[in-house]
């Protein structure tokens, strides 16, 4: 069963049709890749899926529910979490606090309980601390729990962003160039982590990536975008050998 069904999604900025008639269907538990040259509209697709932009046309169905045109926070509550191409962490908070912000809607207590430090506050905070450490362990960040997020090295900042997104307990995880700026070793490690996350949390993952080694290594299916339109869609092997795709990337 498809967890995400997108039909005829389109958006224009002025005269530019940034995403034109985009269709995608992602099976539950899949690791799906979205690739294409720079400026093809990949991040715009992510922004449409997460409600940052409202589509001009088309529908987004998540797990049988129409979420088209909803606000970002509602879409997050419905079960889509994301990371960003240019890392967006809460820099002045610690690593653990970053993940605890991700748990904001998962573990709750009233404001007044927090101000008066009632037992419900202590219980919920303890649960949040334990859960966040658990998540940090998956990404091997638990030793840095008390470090300020801005003091982490680049590769770990990317991992922390994924941990924070996972904390919101999503059905679908969108990763925007998770391997950008990583060296080959870090990329390899990240590939393992992404696969581990998919298996461990039974997550569906859609990722944008330029690193073809990563894409061909872990994605089972691909969609190629070019000038806002779907150029090609299907199994990874087929797509990467498609002459059209090669042309779009390398030119004639």
């Amino acid at each position: 069963m498809a967890i995400l069904d997108v039909t005829n999604l389109s958006i224009s900025f002025g005269g530019l049709r940034a995403v034109d008639n985009f269709n995608i269907s992602i099976e539950e538990g899949a690791l799906y890749g979205l690739i294409g040259p720079n400026g093809a509209g990949k991040t715009t697709v992510f922004n449409l899926l997460t409600g940052v932009y409202k589509p001009n046309e088309g529908h987004i169905i998540l797990d049988g529910k129409d979420i088209t045109g909803k606000k970002t926070i509602e879409i997050n509550k419905e079960g889509i979490a994301r990371t960003f191409q240019n890392i967006r962490l809460f820099k002045e908070l610690t690593v653990q606090e970053n993940v605890m912000v991700g748990l904001h809607n998962e573990i709750t207590y009233p404001t007044l309980a927090g101000i008066l430090k009632l037992p419900s506050y202590r219980r919920a905070e303890k649960e949040m601390r334990e859960k966040s450490i658990e998540l940090l362990k998956v990404f091997d960040l638990d030793q840095e729990a008390d470090t300020l997020a801005s003091n982490l090295p680049y590769g770990k900042q990317r991992k922390l962003e994924i941990a924070r997104a996972l904390a919101t307990n999503p059905k679908l995880l969108l990763l925007d160039e998770p391997a950008a700026g990583m060296n080959p070793n870090e990329t390899l490690e990240l590939m393992n982590t992404i696969q581990f996350v998919r298996d461990q949390f039974k997550m569906t993952i859609l990722l944008i990536e330029h690193d073809m080694k990563l894409v061909s290594g872990i994605c089972s299916k691909l969609t190629v975008l070019n000038f806002g339109q779907v150029l090609c869609q299907g199994d990874t092997e087929e797509v990467l050998n498609n002459p059209e795709v090669v042309k779009a990337y390398l030119g004639e």
Binding site: T72, I73, N76, F84, R88, F90, K91, E92, V101, H104
Partner: peptide
């Protein structure tokens, strides 16, 4: 504080 540090990211985690 999350809003202060990064508004877009705060929104993306449902705040």
């Amino acid at each position: 504080m999350a809003i202060r540090d990064n508004l877009i990211a705060a929104e993306s985690v449902g705040i």
